[in-house]
Amino acid sequence: MTGAELDRREVLGALFPDPARYLMVAGLAGSARDAAALTGEADYLFAFGGAMGGAVPMGLGMALAAPDRPVAVITGDGELLMNAGALASVASAMPENLSIVCIDNGRHGETGGQLGHTARRTDLAKLAEGAGLPSAMTAADGAGLAAAADFLQNAPGPRLVCVRVRPGPPADYRRSWDPAECRLRFRRAFRETAGG
């Protein structure tokens, strides 16, 4: 993680200038808060608060169920690695409408900042590429972030962007902790926009 200079709180705004285009899933902890801050905790965001490792496969299910809607998964390096095999499932299913953004701080920020695998030897973009995703890149500075925003629009899907960020707090946003409430509001919003 040496050299990571980006502040995680500035990442999603740069990558998603128009977040309402997407159906969104956020992995637990910091990613959920960053995604909630990005969208004002919009109806089209389902943010985990547990069930670590579920964000990518939930995004896969959403992308297969709604192939005409862009789907974005926003998660962290620890959450992604807990179910790294899901990247292979994504590659086999090949949903072109699925984008995965990993905010990689190389740490388990929620539990005290303990170093994770990506602070040691693991490279998530290479992992995604090896799993078979057609497009994967790493962004580690402002220029990389601008390139990543373009990549999310134009690279063949499914695609993964790993954004290396410096250690630091996520957005200060109090999101809902009730998954049943989040489910109902997401489904209602999806129904209202289906076909539109």
Binding site: M58, A86, R187
Partner: peptide, 26 residues
Amino acid sequence: TRAVLLASEQEGIALAAGADLAGARA
């Protein structure tokens, strides 16, 4: 119908929930 190969069964639980959010049944 579509068959979706998983690496681990737990993915399927989250996948089915994602499908439910987007109005499908898995």
